[in-house]
Amino acid sequence: MSCEPWQCAEVSSTKKAMAITKPEVAISLIRRANRPILVVGSNAINRKLEGKLLIDYLIDFAKASKIPIVATAHMVGEFLKRGYKPAGFMSAMDIGNRLVDPEWQGIDGKGPHDLAVFVALPYYMQGLILSGLMHFATKLKTLTLDNMYHPHASWSFPNAGVGIWAENLKVMTSKFEGGQ
């Protein structure tokens, strides 16, 4: 496993995401957060892990962890097709823009989020949004669930193959089911 950015030139400067070596770390971060949110991008239907689409892993994970999902692009339709209603949907830029606003009361109107978990946006786009949040959402922590290292997040999984990725998502889902 490598902690280099997935896209070689996407280097960070003085701040770099902490690498998550075990899925338990991500679980702990989500459990410790008071108001986490999961932002799911359009690659959720483009990535297949062990014969199953990423979106289906994410639905399992969201159901287990109870983390609210904000779907970007046209993913809301994909979630609804699968019988899962996300907490909200908006463009990736809109959710980023709201997360930098300390007065935004969150997707459910109950208060600002303290952890934003990102997954499945185009790598470069997700990286830029994470950079915006790193600079302008000073009270927010960010975590990515992709198998691509995102240096601008607070925490990120390192680059890994889809097998490890699938295993991580399965472990995370099972731990929530077992732990809550």
Binding site: S12, S13, T14, K15, M93, G96, N97, V100, L128, I129, S131, G132, M134, H135, F136, T138
Partner: peptide
């Protein structure tokens, strides 16, 4: 404006590079 800095540094003058992270 909603900013998405592609680079955390400024290297446009000889004072730099300047680290612009963390405010």
């Amino acid at each position: 404006p909603f900013y998405l800095p592609a680079c955390d540094l400024c290297c446009l003058c000889t004072f730099g590079k300047c680290d612009l992270t963390g405010g």
